[in-house]
Design a protein around this nucleic acid. Structure first.
Lengths: 234, 234
DNA sequence: CACAGATTCGTATCGTCGCTAACTCCTAGC
DNA sequence: GCTAGGAGTTAGCGACGATACGAATCTGTG
């Protein structure tokens, strides 16, 4: 489906260029086809639809996003990586506002998986934090919180042209959400040490796995840990 | 400009209905005109443009939003009002997803002032909190934080159809942002009591004013208080 | 009442958009 | 050489946003 088609890639890049340069953040299929020197039906053969083209643009945007993340994260301090990840997210939004809105603004159609994959990246980063004992809630819950706050702050920043108090606002939001999700680094005075230990073991299982238990036993252990970390669940 | 025009109101309501019922959250000027039994040029005479119509729809949405807020807030506990305001915001987004996106998603054009007016409402609610000594930062900064988090959470909720862990996520986000912005209710162990006192006086001046000082003196006092509450400012 | 000016609305139309049917061309396989 | 199928083009359809222009209606004055 997505084999190495240079024409397809050229059309995606042309669409992204026009999306960024257009004043109303809109793109015309005719203009995209004309930019790469082909006719309209080739677009509809490659992407099936205009929304198919936009989904491809969004997925291509995720590729750049993931490359940017892979280049900067992954030190030995997962919490520091998390902070850098927030700032990198904001920088990506600032650098590509139109593409960012295409990726993260909820369109009722849109089969693009860009947002879900960004979420997966965030869950992975948070799982590393949980394995280090730095997380107070499950990685998935923390990821939903952080991503919603990050997107909300980024869209707010894109909306207003230059209200000049931006970095402070982003860092305030980052600290607010992180302090609610991470354990205090200095003192580990947690009210429920069982909860944190279960979270930590669960994350460690996700990261490295274990050969000491049979697969069925590991699955059951996972469910037990989940019942410990999220008690109120049907 | 916005005199009591029943035809104008009918077109706004028709547009809002079509916006809510349409699958792609889109509205056609022809359909709006046909719904109220007039022709296209009347739309362009009343609203000037399609974006003018959408701006009017967004402003009308703000009216309903403001009415909903005025009906529930304003008890004697401004912090409780703030919590109710967050939940009311989420309920409004859940009830009118298409209208909510029109109001709060950043469109590059859009002369609608709906978002700014919602921000003003939030600043007012936060000023009451500050006058009660419950705020740790300036009302405007807190409003930017809260609104960005609230919109981000609401858009995230609208995007995914039913990931069933919604109220918990909304309340988590609310607690995270509020705990970063409000003072701890039990103990008032603030690191900078001068800062909090200045914030409180500034809010009290905004709310009630004073006759003990001349207007010029009050203005100068305001600037001094601002220099105390936000030290790093050109 | 008559009439001029302004306002308001409908008819018809333009240019553009997303999208598709039908045809042509080029290449692979026997 | 011939055919089958993929890849591309031309031409066009219906719907959209927006507008020019004339008809109808209202308003105020003599």
């Amino acid at each position: 489906m997505a084999e190495n088609d240079p024409l397809r890639a050229a059309m995606i890049e042309a669409a992204e260029r026009q999306l960024a340069s257009s004043s109303d953040h809109e793109v015309a299929t005719r203009a995209v086809c004309e930019a790469v020197g082909v006719s309209q039906p080739v677009l509809y053969r490659l992407f099936g639809d205009k929304r198919g083209l936009l989904d491809a643009v969004a997925d291509h945007g995720y590729e750049r996003y993931a490359a940017l993340k892979a280049a900067q994260e992954q030190t030995d301090d997962p919490v520091a990586d998390l902070h850098a990840g927030w700032d990198g997210h904001m920088a990506f939004a600032r650098a590509n506002p139109a593409l960012y809105q295409l990726m993260f603004t909820p369109r009722p159609w849109s089969h693009s998986t860009a947002r879900d994959r960004v979420m997966d990246l965030l869950v992975a980063a948070l799982t590393r934090c949980a394995a280090a004992g730095a997380l107070r809630v499950e990685p998935r819950t923390a990821a939903q919180l952080i991503l919603a706050a990050n997107v909300g702050t980024a869209l707010d920043h894109i909306a207003r042209p230059a209200l000049f108090d931006d970095p402070a606002l982003s860092h305030r939001m980052r600290d607010a959400v992180f302090s609610h999700v991470l354990t205090t680094t200095t003192a580990q005075n947690d009210a429920d040490p069982l909860h944190t230990a279960a979270l930590r073991l669960h994350a460690q299982l996700d990261l490295t796995g274990t050969e000491a238990l049979e697969p069925a036993e590991t699955a059951l252990l996972r469910r037990w840990l989940e019942r410990i970390t999220q008690p109120g669940r049907g």
